[in-house]
Design a protein around this nucleic acid. Structure first.
Lengths: 183, 183
DNA sequence: AGCAGGGGAGAACGAGCGTTCTCCGCATGG
DNA sequence: CCATGCGGAGAACGCTCGTTCTCCCCTGCT
């Protein structure tokens, strides 16, 4: 097993475990057991647990935003793209094993103690906010609308996570639709 | 120092420390140091750390909802009361030491490992949702509006926590105002 | 004064876990 | 065939921390 593959396996295991059970309740030994990558290898690839956490969040960030954009951009009309964001949230919330927003969970767990993780969470949320800003600008709407849609999306993520339900996505979509048609 | 006072001191310290630094990074010894209540007393009052955490969340829940209701009910018109909720969020976000929603932080930290804490978070959010529902019903609006306002408020809390800014309250208030005037 | 007991300070205990180390097998190159 | 070194398994180490225990003081009662 070469380094690239070991790295991928380690990140797969880290993502599954950190997302599913929280970062602090997962030990490096659990990551080894799930990934099949030995501790020695793990520490060669990620010299400390915190680096593994950062790599997990970074890889997930790229995938999350990529999938969102891919989904939204199937729509042609700017307004449709905006609403598609909420549809995509709904499919995400309905996935088995959905446990809320990985970044918000990580922030609650580590934000107070790890400035680097807190920074990653802020960067992820800023990127999402800017993506919404771009969609809103493409629709010729004021940027303030993007802020409001962002709050709806964040509220939906948090509520879906806590209540284990996909319903908030539809509620947020409806609110977004009304904000769009009113403005 | 009698038991009631010791209990109060312990909860004061627990709240300050758990909220400010997260539950897991605060030891019982820190609570003892901050509260001045000895470990022996602490364990008489709260036989395990988890019970102290639950008591912290419960006391804070009562205070949080009480203060919100007190603030909102200074307004007479139902619509004004709804908007006052967002004004109150703004004053909360601007308080020194604000670090986001205590329940969402606790959920990110412990939701995956403590079913009791997860239940407290759900109960707190449900109560807030129902409070909004009552305000919305008093305004003669459909309950679906309360769900949308709830998502805005949750999004504002989370975003204010992550970005350390009070601004999301005003954004959410503006969105709420538009949803109110549109419907 | 003598004593019983609650309470405080802090040491001690035990588990969990991040990180490192030891030991061994095995593959590869001379 | 032997030497070398990488990699795996898992023991070991050290620290943190939840929880309990020890020892002692002080108070209040007789």
């Amino acid at each position: 097993m070469d380094s690239a593959l070991a790295r991928e396996r380690a990140l797969d295991a880290a993502e599954e475990l950190f997302y599913g059970r929280g970062v602090q309740s997962v030990g490096m030994d659990d990551v080894r057991g799930t990934s099949g990558v030995s501790l020695k290898r793990l520490y060669q690839l990620f010299p400390a647990k915190e680096l593994l956490v950062e790599a997990y969040l970074e890889r997930r960030d790229a995938r999350w935003r990529g999938q969102l954009a891919e989904y939204a951009e199937r729509q042609v009309e700017p307004e449709e793209r905006i609403l598609a964001v909420f549809d995509w949230l709904g499919t995400w919330f309905a996935e088995p094993g959905f446990r809320g927003c990985a970044w918000l969970n990580a922030y609650g767990e580590l934000g107070a103690t790890s400035e680097r993780v807190a920074g990653q969470v802020r960067a992820h949320k800023r990127a999402f906010r800017e993506y919404l800003g771009a969609l809103v600008a493409a629709a010729g709407r004021p940027d303030a609308l993007a802020g409001q849609l962002f709050l709806l999306a964040e509220g939906a993520m948090v509520t879906a996570g806590v209540t284990r339900s996909a319903e908030p996505a539809a509620e947020a979509r409806e609110a977004a639709r009304r904000l769009l048609e009113a403005g």
